[in-house]
């Protein structure tokens, strides 16, 4: 269960007026402001928004990578800023950066993160074996991941996020760059997590994906929450017939998609 209340994050950007300018101007960019929502156990919550809306920044704050400037959030009752270590054990994160170690095998990648989560050698190996077979990586498990396809790499990355069987799972654009088959198996996997009673929060800019998967949808644009409810409620609120039209109406403009 994730509960976010009025999370805000600003970045200061230093800029030069020209290439040779000595002075830099600092500009404050508001990436996320006053974002509040809940994501419940046994539900899939979609964080929907155009590129640059603040989805990744929100997920980074929830995964303790960035400290919010204001607002607070709890994950299963643990406070985001006060109990970082506890939060990190509760969370499984597939973040914006999904890199894996090329020179290690898929199995070694998984076991490394298992051990960092405090698992013993034997339970780490057992859990890695289970995930390898569930993700269909058995044939590749003991090869260095250097030669893996993008879909195979994504599987290792998601396995890594789930290695310690976390109750809460954050997924940042988990289907980005995947082909249709891989996208389908990723959706399958996310539904499986829901069936296990996990709390899944995932971000996407793709409407169909959100419509196909989510119990609840949080639409954000320009760092603000525009809508929070079920997909059906989103349609009703916007008065549109398709979710895509509803999305465009709810974020207030269509230029956001290309911004």
């Amino acid at each position: 269960m994730i509960s976010a209340q009025a999370l805000s994050k600003n970045f200061t950007v230093k800029e030069r007026t020209s290439t040779f300018a000595l002075k830099t101007k600092t500009r404050v960019v508001s990436a996320v402001s006053n974002v509040s929502f809940d994501a419940r156990d046994g539900e899939i919550t979609g964080l929907l928004g155009p590129n640059g809306a603040g989805k990744t920044t929100t997920l980074r704050m929830l995964s303790t990578l960035l400290t919010p400037d204001s607002g607070r959030a709890t994950i299963d009752g643990a406070d985001l800023t006060q109990q970082r270590a506890a939060i990190r054990q509760k969370l499984g994160v597939l973040g914006d950066a999904k890199g894996i170690y090329w020179r290690l095998t898929a199995r070694e990648n998984l076991i490394y993160f298992a051990k960092l989560q405090g698992m013993s050698e034997s339970s780490a190996a057992a859990r890695a074996e289970l995930l390898i077979s569930e993700l269909g990586l058995s044939a590749l498990a003991d090869r260095p991941t250097q030669g893996f396809s993008q879909g195979e790499r994504m599987k290792v990355a998601i396995g890594r996020a789930l290695i310690h069987d976390p109750q809460t799972v954050l997924l940042d654009e988990p289907t980005n760059g995947l082909d249709i088959m891989s996208t389908r198996s990723m959706r399958e996997l996310i539904r499986g997590l829901k069936a296990q009673g996990k709390c899944v929060l995932f971000s996407s800019h793709i409407m169909q994906e959100v419509a196909a998967l989510c119990d609840r949808v949080v639409i954000i644009a320009k760092g603000r929450v525009m809508f929070d409810g079920t997909p059906a409620e989103a349609l009703k609120a916007s008065g549109a017939t398709t979710l895509e039209d509803g999305f465009v109406k709810l974020i207030g403009s269509d230029e956001g998609l290309f911004a």
Binding site: L65, L91, V93, A97, G99, I100, L116, G118
Partner: peptide, 9 residues
């Protein structure tokens, strides 16, 4: 790979 690492304990 640094970011995933920093989300672990």
């Amino acid at each position: 790979t640094l970011e995933p690492l920093l989300t672990t304990p």
